[in-house]
Design a protein around this nucleic acid. Sequence first.
DNA 1: ACAAAAGTGTTGCACGTACACCCATGT
DNA 2: ACATGGGTGTACGTGCAACACTTTTGT
Lengths: 235, 235
Amino acid sequence: MDIQLPHFDSVFSTDCVIFGFEAGELKVLLIERNEEPYQGWYALPGNIVGLEESVDNAAARILYELTGLRDIHMRQFHTFGEVNRHPQGRVVTVGYFALIRIGGQKEVAPLTHFARKAFWHPVNDLPKLAFDHTEIFQRAFKKIRVKMNYEPIAFELLPEKFTLTQLQNLYEAVLNKKLDKRNFRKKMLSYGFLKELMEKQKGVSYRAAKLYKFDRRKYQKIFQTELAAQGAVAS
Amino acid sequence: MDIQLPHFDSVFSTDCVIFGFEAGELKVLLIERNEEPYQGWYALPGNIVGLEESVDNAAARILYELTGLRDIHMRQFHTFGEVNRHPQGRVVTVGYFALIRIGGQKEVAPLTHFARKAFWHPVNDLPKLAFDHTEIFQRAFKKIRVKMNYEPIAFELLPEKFTLTQLQNLYEAVLNKKLDKRNFRKKMLSYGFLKELMEKQKGVSYRAAKLYKFDRRKYQKIFQTELAAQGAVAS
DNA sequence: ACAAAAGTGTTGCACGTACACCCATGT
DNA sequence: ACATGGGTGTACGTGCAACACTTTTGT
Protein backbone atom coordinates (compact mmCIF):
# COMPACT_ATOMS: atom_id res chain seq x y z
CA MET A 1 0.00 0.00 0.00
CA ASP A 2 1.33 3.39 -0.99
CA ILE A 3 1.46 5.43 2.19
CA GLN A 4 1.52 9.18 1.69
CA LEU A 5 -0.19 10.13 4.88
CA PRO A 6 1.58 11.77 7.79
CA HIS A 7 3.28 9.20 9.99
CA PHE A 8 1.82 9.28 13.43
CA ASP A 9 2.70 7.03 16.30
CA SER A 10 -0.89 6.17 16.83
CA VAL A 11 -2.82 2.99 16.81
CA PHE A 12 -6.36 1.86 17.15
CA SER A 13 -7.62 -0.98 19.19
CA THR A 14 -10.89 -2.70 19.92
CA ASP A 15 -12.41 -3.60 23.24
CA CYS A 16 -15.27 -6.05 23.58
CA VAL A 17 -17.99 -6.00 26.19
CA ILE A 18 -19.45 -9.50 26.12
CA PHE A 19 -22.55 -10.07 28.20
CA GLY A 20 -23.77 -13.41 29.45
CA PHE A 21 -26.53 -14.60 31.73
CA GLU A 22 -26.01 -17.27 34.34
CA ALA A 23 -27.62 -18.19 37.63
CA GLY A 24 -30.08 -15.33 37.28
CA GLU A 25 -27.29 -12.81 37.02
CA LEU A 26 -26.04 -10.69 34.16
CA LYS A 27 -22.31 -11.16 33.68
CA VAL A 28 -19.53 -9.68 31.63
CA LEU A 29 -16.50 -11.42 30.22
CA LEU A 30 -13.18 -10.18 31.60
CA ILE A 31 -9.57 -11.18 31.18
CA GLU A 32 -6.68 -10.93 33.55
CA ARG A 33 -3.89 -9.13 31.75
CA ASN A 34 -0.50 -10.79 31.56
CA GLU A 35 1.43 -7.84 30.13
CA GLU A 36 2.29 -4.29 30.99
CA PRO A 37 0.70 -1.88 31.32
CA TYR A 38 -1.82 -2.96 33.93
CA GLN A 39 -0.27 -6.41 34.24
CA GLY A 40 -2.37 -8.53 36.57
CA TRP A 41 -5.39 -6.21 36.27
CA TYR A 42 -8.77 -7.23 35.05
CA ALA A 43 -9.75 -5.77 31.71
CA LEU A 44 -12.16 -6.12 28.85
CA PRO A 45 -10.84 -8.35 26.10
CA GLY A 46 -9.17 -5.97 23.66
CA ASN A 47 -6.06 -5.39 21.65
CA ILE A 48 -4.55 -3.55 18.75
CA VAL A 49 -6.02 -3.64 15.27
CA GLY A 50 -3.68 -4.90 12.55
CA LEU A 51 -2.93 -2.83 9.49
CA GLU A 52 -4.44 -5.31 7.10
CA GLU A 53 -7.70 -6.12 8.80
CA SER A 54 -10.88 -4.15 9.19
CA VAL A 55 -11.76 -2.97 12.67
CA ASP A 56 -14.81 -5.27 12.68
CA ASN A 57 -12.67 -8.28 11.82
CA ALA A 58 -10.04 -7.29 14.34
CA ALA A 59 -12.65 -7.24 17.08
CA ALA A 60 -13.64 -10.81 16.24
CA ARG A 61 -10.04 -12.01 15.98
CA ILE A 62 -8.98 -10.41 19.24
CA LEU A 63 -11.95 -11.78 21.11
CA TYR A 64 -11.10 -15.24 19.82
CA GLU A 65 -7.46 -15.01 20.84
CA LEU A 66 -8.22 -13.77 24.31
CA THR A 67 -11.21 -15.89 25.17
CA GLY A 68 -11.60 -18.68 22.63
CA LEU A 69 -15.00 -17.36 21.58
CA ARG A 70 -15.74 -17.15 17.88
CA ASP A 71 -18.62 -16.47 15.54
CA ILE A 72 -20.05 -14.01 17.98
CA HIS A 73 -22.33 -11.32 16.63
CA MET A 74 -20.67 -8.13 17.80
CA ARG A 75 -21.93 -4.61 17.33
CA GLN A 76 -20.00 -1.42 17.53
CA PHE A 77 -21.33 1.04 20.07
CA HIS A 78 -18.84 3.84 20.67
CA THR A 79 -15.30 4.96 19.99
CA PHE A 80 -13.16 6.30 22.80
CA GLY A 81 -10.71 8.93 21.68
CA GLU A 82 -9.34 10.72 24.72
CA VAL A 83 -5.65 11.59 24.51
CA ASN A 84 -4.48 9.95 27.70
CA ARG A 85 -6.59 6.86 27.90
CA HIS A 86 -3.54 4.64 27.32
CA PRO A 87 -0.40 5.33 29.39
CA GLN A 88 2.04 4.34 26.66
CA GLY A 89 0.85 6.27 23.67
CA ARG A 90 -2.07 7.37 21.65
CA VAL A 91 -4.60 4.62 21.33
CA VAL A 92 -8.10 5.21 20.08
CA THR A 93 -10.32 2.27 20.83
CA VAL A 94 -13.51 1.12 19.18
CA GLY A 95 -15.96 -0.49 21.57
CA TYR A 96 -18.05 -3.52 20.62
CA PHE A 97 -20.64 -5.41 22.56
CA ALA A 98 -22.27 -8.81 22.19
CA LEU A 99 -24.72 -10.97 24.07
CA ILE A 100 -24.10 -14.68 24.19
CA ARG A 101 -25.14 -17.86 25.91
CA ILE A 102 -22.67 -18.77 28.60
CA GLY A 103 -21.70 -22.36 27.96
CA GLY A 104 -22.98 -22.26 24.42
CA GLN A 105 -19.39 -22.74 23.34
CA LYS A 106 -16.72 -24.50 25.35
CA GLU A 107 -15.25 -22.84 28.42
CA VAL A 108 -13.66 -19.47 27.86
CA ALA A 109 -9.87 -19.52 27.91
CA PRO A 110 -7.17 -17.36 26.32
CA LEU A 111 -5.22 -18.74 23.36
CA THR A 112 -2.33 -16.31 23.80
CA HIS A 113 -0.06 -15.39 26.67
CA PHE A 114 -1.44 -11.85 26.52
CA ALA A 115 -4.13 -12.86 29.02
CA ARG A 116 -3.67 -15.15 31.99
CA LYS A 117 -7.29 -16.14 32.09
CA ALA A 118 -10.73 -15.24 30.88
CA PHE A 119 -13.76 -15.43 33.14
CA TRP A 120 -17.32 -14.26 33.69
CA HIS A 121 -17.95 -11.64 36.33
CA PRO A 122 -21.34 -10.32 37.55
CA VAL A 123 -21.98 -6.83 36.24
CA ASN A 124 -22.94 -5.66 39.69
CA ASP A 125 -19.93 -5.29 41.89
CA LEU A 126 -17.32 -5.05 39.15
CA PRO A 127 -13.75 -4.42 40.33
CA LYS A 128 -11.73 -1.51 38.98
CA LEU A 129 -10.69 -2.33 35.44
CA ALA A 130 -7.57 -1.43 33.48
CA PHE A 131 -7.42 1.73 31.38
CA ASP A 132 -10.82 3.39 30.96
CA HIS A 133 -12.51 0.01 30.68
CA THR A 134 -14.94 0.75 33.48
CA GLU A 135 -16.29 3.65 31.45
CA ILE A 136 -16.40 1.53 28.31
CA PHE A 137 -18.31 -1.15 30.15
CA GLN A 138 -20.78 1.34 31.60
CA ARG A 139 -21.53 2.74 28.21
CA ALA A 140 -22.14 -0.70 26.74
CA PHE A 141 -24.36 -1.64 29.65
CA LYS A 142 -26.46 1.44 29.19
CA LYS A 143 -26.72 0.67 25.50
CA ILE A 144 -28.11 -2.81 25.95
CA ARG A 145 -30.56 -1.65 28.60
CA VAL A 146 -32.01 0.81 26.13
CA LYS A 147 -31.84 -1.60 23.21
CA MET A 148 -33.58 -4.37 25.08
CA ASN A 149 -36.76 -2.29 25.02
CA TYR A 150 -37.09 -2.33 21.27
CA GLU A 151 -35.01 -5.20 19.89
CA PRO A 152 -35.12 -8.90 20.69
CA ILE A 153 -31.55 -9.10 21.92
CA ALA A 154 -32.46 -10.83 25.17
CA PHE A 155 -32.77 -14.17 23.40
CA GLU A 156 -29.10 -14.12 22.52
CA LEU A 157 -28.37 -14.55 26.21
CA LEU A 158 -30.64 -17.51 26.85
CA PRO A 159 -30.27 -21.16 25.95
CA GLU A 160 -32.13 -22.12 22.81
CA LYS A 161 -35.03 -23.48 24.83
CA PHE A 162 -36.20 -21.42 27.74
CA THR A 163 -39.22 -20.82 29.93
CA LEU A 164 -41.08 -17.54 30.09
CA THR A 165 -40.00 -17.13 33.67
CA GLN A 166 -36.36 -17.40 32.66
CA LEU A 167 -36.98 -14.78 30.01
CA GLN A 168 -38.64 -12.51 32.52
CA ASN A 169 -35.81 -12.97 35.01
CA LEU A 170 -33.39 -11.89 32.33
CA TYR A 171 -35.37 -8.76 31.53
CA GLU A 172 -35.57 -7.97 35.20
CA ALA A 173 -31.83 -8.44 35.64
CA VAL A 174 -30.94 -6.20 32.73
CA LEU A 175 -33.53 -3.50 33.33
CA ASN A 176 -33.05 -3.74 37.07
CA LYS A 177 -36.72 -3.68 37.91
CA LYS A 178 -39.55 -6.03 38.67
CA LEU A 179 -42.05 -6.78 35.95
CA ASP A 180 -45.61 -8.01 36.20
CA LYS A 181 -45.83 -11.68 35.30
CA ARG A 182 -49.14 -11.65 33.48
CA ASN A 183 -48.41 -8.53 31.52
CA PHE A 184 -44.96 -9.72 30.61
CA ARG A 185 -46.24 -13.02 29.25
CA LYS A 186 -49.13 -11.43 27.41
CA LYS A 187 -46.84 -8.95 25.73
CA MET A 188 -44.12 -11.43 24.80
CA LEU A 189 -46.57 -13.92 23.35
CA SER A 190 -48.46 -11.19 21.51
CA TYR A 191 -45.39 -10.45 19.40
CA GLY A 192 -45.82 -13.83 17.83
CA PHE A 193 -42.17 -14.69 17.48
CA LEU A 194 -42.00 -17.13 20.38
CA LYS A 195 -42.52 -20.71 19.36
CA GLU A 196 -44.10 -22.91 21.97
CA LEU A 197 -42.40 -26.30 22.08
CA MET A 198 -44.00 -29.63 22.88
CA GLU A 199 -41.44 -29.99 25.59
CA LYS A 200 -41.35 -29.10 29.25
CA GLN A 201 -38.73 -28.25 31.79
CA LYS A 202 -37.11 -31.23 33.52
CA GLY A 203 -35.57 -31.88 36.90
CA VAL A 204 -37.43 -29.23 38.85
CA SER A 205 -39.22 -29.95 42.08
CA TYR A 206 -42.34 -28.08 41.14
CA ARG A 207 -44.69 -27.88 38.21
CA ALA A 208 -42.62 -27.99 35.03
CA ALA A 209 -42.93 -24.98 32.74
CA LYS A 210 -43.38 -25.03 28.98
CA LEU A 211 -40.32 -24.40 26.90
CA TYR A 212 -40.22 -21.83 24.14
CA LYS A 213 -37.74 -20.82 21.54
CA PHE A 214 -37.18 -17.59 19.71
CA ASP A 215 -38.27 -17.93 16.09
CA ARG A 216 -35.98 -15.61 14.22
CA ARG A 217 -37.70 -16.18 10.91
CA LYS A 218 -41.05 -15.14 12.29
CA TYR A 219 -39.45 -12.15 13.94
CA GLN A 220 -37.91 -11.00 10.69
CA LYS A 221 -41.17 -11.49 8.88
CA ILE A 222 -42.95 -9.27 11.39
CA PHE A 223 -40.15 -6.75 11.38
CA GLN A 224 -39.98 -6.53 7.61
CA THR A 225 -43.73 -6.13 7.41
CA GLU A 226 -43.52 -3.19 9.77
CA LEU A 227 -40.76 -1.63 7.75
CA ALA A 228 -42.70 -2.12 4.55
CA ALA A 229 -45.74 -0.49 6.10
CA GLN A 230 -43.66 2.51 7.11
CA GLY A 231 -42.15 2.67 3.64
CA ALA A 232 -45.59 2.64 2.07
CA VAL A 233 -46.68 5.63 4.14
CA ALA A 234 -43.51 7.43 3.26
CA SER A 235 -43.70 6.94 -0.48
CA MET B 1 4.80 10.85 25.92
CA ASP B 2 6.66 7.60 26.25
CA ILE B 3 5.69 5.50 23.23
CA GLN B 4 6.24 1.78 23.62
CA LEU B 5 3.50 0.61 21.32
CA PRO B 6 4.13 -0.91 17.92
CA HIS B 7 4.66 1.74 15.28
CA PHE B 8 1.97 1.49 12.67
CA ASP B 9 1.50 3.75 9.71
CA SER B 10 -2.07 4.31 10.62
CA VAL B 11 -4.05 7.37 11.44
CA PHE B 12 -7.53 8.22 12.50
CA SER B 13 -9.69 10.94 11.13
CA THR B 14 -13.10 12.42 11.77
CA ASP B 15 -15.85 13.18 9.30
CA CYS B 16 -18.78 15.40 10.14
CA VAL B 17 -22.30 15.14 8.79
CA ILE B 18 -23.84 18.53 9.47
CA PHE B 19 -27.54 18.86 8.76
CA GLY B 20 -29.37 22.10 8.12
CA PHE B 21 -32.89 23.08 7.10
CA GLU B 22 -33.59 25.76 4.55
CA ALA B 23 -36.41 26.51 2.15
CA GLY B 24 -38.35 23.50 3.38
CA GLU B 25 -35.51 21.17 2.51
CA LEU B 26 -33.11 19.18 4.61
CA LYS B 27 -29.52 19.91 3.63
CA VAL B 28 -26.07 18.64 4.43
CA LEU B 29 -22.84 20.61 4.58
CA LEU B 30 -20.24 19.58 2.00
CA ILE B 31 -16.84 20.83 1.00
CA GLU B 32 -15.07 20.75 -2.31
CA ARG B 33 -11.68 19.16 -1.76
CA ASN B 34 -8.62 21.05 -2.87
CA GLU B 35 -6.09 18.26 -2.34
CA GLU B 36 -5.35 14.77 -3.50
CA PRO B 37 -6.77 12.26 -3.25
CA TYR B 38 -10.20 13.14 -4.64
CA GLN B 39 -9.13 16.68 -5.48
CA GLY B 40 -12.11 18.60 -6.80
CA TRP B 41 -14.59 16.11 -5.39
CA TYR B 42 -17.31 16.89 -2.94
CA ALA B 43 -16.83 15.42 0.49
CA LEU B 44 -17.96 15.62 4.07
CA PRO B 45 -15.84 17.98 6.14
CA GLY B 46 -13.20 15.78 7.70
CA ASN B 47 -9.51 15.43 8.33
CA ILE B 48 -6.88 13.72 10.38
CA VAL B 49 -6.88 13.77 14.17
CA GLY B 50 -3.77 15.22 15.79
CA LEU B 51 -1.73 13.25 18.30
CA GLU B 52 -2.35 15.67 21.11
CA GLU B 53 -6.08 16.21 20.82
CA SER B 54 -9.02 14.01 21.66
CA VAL B 55 -11.10 12.74 18.78
CA ASP B 56 -14.04 14.82 19.97
CA ASN B 57 -11.95 17.97 19.99
CA ALA B 58 -10.46 17.14 16.63
CA ALA B 59 -13.92 16.87 15.12
CA ALA B 60 -14.74 20.37 16.34
CA ARG B 61 -11.42 21.83 15.19
CA ILE B 62 -11.61 20.26 11.75
CA LEU B 63 -15.15 21.39 11.21
CA TYR B 64 -14.11 24.92 12.12
CA GLU B 65 -11.15 24.94 9.78
CA LEU B 66 -13.10 23.59 6.86
CA THR B 67 -16.34 25.51 7.26
CA GLY B 68 -15.89 28.30 9.79
CA LEU B 69 -18.53 26.74 12.05
CA ARG B 70 -17.76 26.54 15.75
CA ASP B 71 -19.46 25.70 19.01
CA ILE B 72 -21.58 23.11 17.27
CA HIS B 73 -22.96 20.29 19.36
CA MET B 74 -21.65 17.20 17.59
CA ARG B 75 -22.40 13.60 18.45
CA GLN B 76 -20.47 10.54 17.48
CA PHE B 77 -22.52 7.96 15.61
CA HIS B 78 -20.24 5.34 14.05
CA THR B 79 -16.64 4.47 13.29
CA PHE B 80 -15.68 3.25 9.84
CA GLY B 81 -12.81 0.82 9.88
CA GLU B 82 -12.61 -0.93 6.51
CA VAL B 83 -9.06 -1.53 5.30
CA ASN B 84 -9.33 0.15 1.92
CA ARG B 85 -11.55 3.08 2.59
CA HIS B 86 -8.68 5.51 1.99
CA PRO B 87 -6.56 5.00 -1.15
CA GLN B 88 -3.33 6.20 0.45
CA GLY B 89 -3.15 4.22 3.62
CA ARG B 90 -4.94 2.95 6.61
CA VAL B 91 -7.35 5.53 7.91
CA VAL B 92 -10.04 4.71 10.40
CA THR B 93 -12.57 7.50 10.62
CA VAL B 94 -14.95 8.45 13.39
CA GLY B 95 -18.26 9.85 12.17
CA TYR B 96 -20.01 12.74 13.91
CA PHE B 97 -23.30 14.41 13.16
CA ALA B 98 -24.87 17.69 14.17
CA LEU B 99 -28.01 19.65 13.42
CA ILE B 100 -27.74 23.40 13.14
CA ARG B 101 -29.59 26.48 12.01
CA ILE B 102 -28.43 27.53 8.59
CA GLY B 103 -27.52 31.21 8.84
CA GLY B 104 -27.33 31.05 12.61
CA GLN B 105 -23.64 31.78 12.21
CA LYS B 106 -22.06 33.71 9.38
CA GLU B 107 -21.79 32.12 5.94
CA VAL B 108 -19.88 28.87 5.77
CA ALA B 109 -16.41 29.18 4.26
CA PRO B 110 -13.16 27.24 4.64
CA LEU B 111 -10.31 28.78 6.64
CA THR B 112 -7.66 26.54 5.08
CA HIS B 113 -6.62 25.74 1.55
CA PHE B 114 -7.60 22.13 2.15
CA ALA B 115 -11.10 22.91 0.91
CA ARG B 116 -12.01 25.19 -1.97
CA LYS B 117 -15.44 25.93 -0.65
CA ALA B 118 -18.07 24.81 1.79
CA PHE B 119 -21.74 24.76 0.88
CA TRP B 120 -25.14 23.35 1.73
CA HIS B 121 -26.57 20.66 -0.49
CA PRO B 122 -30.05 19.10 -0.33
CA VAL B 123 -29.90 15.58 1.06
CA ASN B 124 -32.03 14.32 -1.76
CA ASP B 125 -30.10 14.14 -4.98
CA LEU B 126 -26.61 14.09 -3.45
CA PRO B 127 -23.75 13.69 -5.92
CA LYS B 128 -21.16 10.95 -5.50
CA LEU B 129 -18.90 11.87 -2.63
CA ALA B 130 -15.21 11.22 -2.05
CA PHE B 131 -14.03 8.08 -0.20
CA ASP B 132 -16.89 6.22 1.46
CA HIS B 133 -18.57 9.47 2.43
CA THR B 134 -21.83 8.52 0.77
CA GLU B 135 -22.10 5.57 3.12
CA ILE B 136 -21.12 7.72 6.09
CA PHE B 137 -23.78 10.23 5.17
CA GLN B 138 -26.44 7.56 4.75
CA ARG B 139 -25.71 6.15 8.14
CA ALA B 140 -25.95 9.56 9.79
CA PHE B 141 -29.19 10.31 7.98
CA LYS B 142 -30.73 7.09 9.17
CA LYS B 143 -29.59 7.91 12.69
CA ILE B 144 -31.29 11.28 12.85
CA ARG B 145 -34.50 9.90 11.34
CA VAL B 146 -34.70 7.37 14.14
CA LYS B 147 -33.59 9.84 16.80
CA MET B 148 -36.12 12.45 15.79
CA ASN B 149 -38.86 10.15 17.02
CA TYR B 150 -37.74 10.22 20.60
CA GLU B 151 -35.50 13.23 21.14
CA PRO B 152 -36.17 16.90 20.51
CA ILE B 153 -33.38 17.33 18.02
CA ALA B 154 -35.58 18.98 15.40
CA PHE B 155 -35.40 22.30 17.22
CA GLU B 156 -31.69 22.52 16.63
CA LEU B 157 -32.45 22.96 12.94
CA LEU B 158 -35.01 25.75 13.28
CA PRO B 159 -34.59 29.42 14.05
CA GLU B 160 -35.17 30.30 17.67
CA LYS B 161 -38.72 31.43 16.95
CA PHE B 162 -40.76 29.27 14.67
CA THR B 163 -44.33 28.41 13.80
CA LEU B 164 -45.90 25.02 14.31
CA THR B 165 -46.25 24.65 10.56
CA GLN B 166 -42.52 25.17 10.10
CA LEU B 167 -41.88 22.55 12.74
CA GLN B 168 -44.22 20.16 11.01
CA ASN B 169 -42.60 20.78 7.63
CA LEU B 170 -39.27 19.90 9.16
CA TYR B 171 -40.55 16.65 10.59
CA GLU B 172 -42.09 15.82 7.26
CA ALA B 173 -38.85 16.55 5.43
CA VAL B 174 -36.75 14.41 7.73
CA LEU B 175 -39.18 11.53 8.11
CA ASN B 176 -40.18 11.77 4.48
CA LYS B 177 -43.88 11.43 5.11
CA LYS B 178 -46.96 13.58 5.54
CA LEU B 179 -48.25 14.16 9.05
CA ASP B 180 -51.72 15.13 10.20
CA LYS B 181 -51.83 18.78 11.20
CA ARG B 182 -54.19 18.50 14.14
CA ASN B 183 -52.55 15.45 15.60
CA PHE B 184 -49.11 16.92 15.15
CA ARG B 185 -50.00 20.12 16.97
CA LYS B 186 -51.84 18.36 19.73
CA LYS B 187 -48.92 16.07 20.36
CA MET B 188 -46.22 18.74 20.23
CA LEU B 189 -48.12 21.06 22.55
CA SER B 190 -48.95 18.22 24.92
CA TYR B 191 -45.27 17.73 25.67
CA GLY B 192 -45.30 21.09 27.36
CA PHE B 193 -41.86 22.20 26.27
CA LEU B 194 -42.99 24.63 23.60
CA LYS B 195 -43.33 28.18 24.81
CA GLU B 196 -45.95 30.23 23.04
CA LEU B 197 -44.66 33.73 22.37
CA MET B 198 -46.67 36.93 22.30
CA GLU B 199 -45.39 37.45 18.82
CA LYS B 200 -46.65 36.52 15.39
CA GLN B 201 -45.17 35.84 12.02
CA LYS B 202 -44.57 38.91 9.86
CA GLY B 203 -44.45 39.62 6.17
CA VAL B 204 -46.73 36.85 5.04
CA SER B 205 -49.67 37.44 2.74
CA TYR B 206 -52.04 35.36 4.77
CA ARG B 207 -53.10 34.95 8.37
CA ALA B 208 -49.98 35.23 10.51
CA ALA B 209 -49.16 32.25 12.72
CA LYS B 210 -48.14 32.33 16.35
CA LEU B 211 -44.47 31.94 17.08
CA TYR B 212 -43.12 29.40 19.54
CA LYS B 213 -39.78 28.60 20.98
CA PHE B 214 -38.32 25.43 22.40
CA ASP B 215 -37.98 25.72 26.16
CA ARG B 216 -35.00 23.57 26.98
CA ARG B 217 -35.36 24.05 30.71
CA LYS B 218 -38.91 22.76 30.68
CA TYR B 219 -37.85 19.89 28.50
CA GLN B 220 -35.13 18.85 30.88
CA LYS B 221 -37.48 19.13 33.81
CA ILE B 222 -39.94 16.79 32.11
CA PHE B 223 -37.19 14.46 31.02
CA GLN B 224 -35.59 14.28 34.46
CA THR B 225 -38.96 13.63 36.04
CA GLU B 226 -39.47 10.70 33.70
CA LEU B 227 -36.06 9.34 34.50
CA ALA B 228 -36.68 9.72 38.21
CA ALA B 229 -40.00 7.87 37.88
CA GLN B 230 -38.26 5.01 36.13
CA GLY B 231 -35.56 5.02 38.76
CA ALA B 232 -38.15 4.80 41.51
CA VAL B 233 -39.73 1.73 39.94
CA ALA B 234 -36.31 0.17 39.59
CA SER B 235 -35.22 0.63 43.18
C1' DA C 1 -64.01 38.82 -2.82
C1' DC C 2 -60.67 35.68 -2.93
C1' DA C 3 -56.55 33.14 -1.94
C1' DA C 4 -53.78 30.98 1.41
C1' DA C 5 -52.64 29.17 5.42
C1' DA C 6 -54.01 29.21 10.67
C1' DG C 7 -56.40 27.10 13.92
C1' DT C 8 -59.53 23.84 16.23
C1' DG C 9 -62.44 18.44 18.69
C1' DT C 10 -64.31 14.06 18.73
C1' DT C 11 -64.38 9.19 18.25
C1' DG C 12 -62.54 4.52 17.99
C1' DC C 13 -58.82 1.50 18.70
C1' DA C 14 -54.57 -0.49 20.40
C1' DC C 15 -51.75 -0.85 24.06
C1' DG C 16 -49.96 -0.72 28.72
C1' DT C 17 -50.92 -1.32 33.55
C1' DA C 18 -52.81 -2.80 37.80
C1' DC C 19 -54.25 -6.55 40.22
C1' DA C 20 -55.22 -12.19 42.86
C1' DC C 21 -56.18 -16.73 42.57
C1' DC C 22 -56.16 -21.74 41.24
C1' DC C 23 -53.15 -25.48 39.16
C1' DA C 24 -49.67 -29.01 38.58
C1' DT C 25 -45.78 -31.30 40.25
C1' DG C 26 -42.15 -33.20 43.30
C1' DT C 27 -40.92 -34.29 47.97
C1' DA D 1 -50.13 -32.34 52.75
C1' DC D 2 -47.39 -28.90 51.58
C1' DA D 3 -44.21 -25.98 49.19
C1' DT D 4 -42.96 -23.98 44.93
C1' DG D 5 -43.39 -21.82 40.98
C1' DG D 6 -46.73 -22.20 36.56
C1' DG D 7 -50.34 -20.32 34.48
C1' DT D 8 -54.45 -17.36 33.60
C1' DG D 9 -58.43 -12.56 32.56
C1' DT D 10 -60.54 -8.18 33.27
C1' DA D 11 -61.14 -3.34 33.75
C1' DC D 12 -59.30 1.12 33.26
C1' DG D 13 -56.69 4.93 31.38
C1' DT D 14 -53.56 6.82 27.91
C1' DG D 15 -52.08 7.84 23.62
C1' DC D 16 -52.35 7.60 18.70
C1' DA D 17 -54.88 7.90 14.18
C1' DA D 18 -58.53 9.28 11.28
C1' DC D 19 -61.19 12.90 9.84
C1' DA D 20 -63.31 18.67 7.73
C1' DC D 21 -64.57 22.99 8.52
C1' DT D 22 -64.25 27.98 10.15
C1' DT D 23 -61.16 32.00 10.89
C1' DT D 24 -57.87 35.47 9.88
C1' DT D 25 -55.18 38.26 7.01
C1' DG D 26 -53.11 40.45 2.89
C1' DT D 27 -53.87 41.57 -1.82
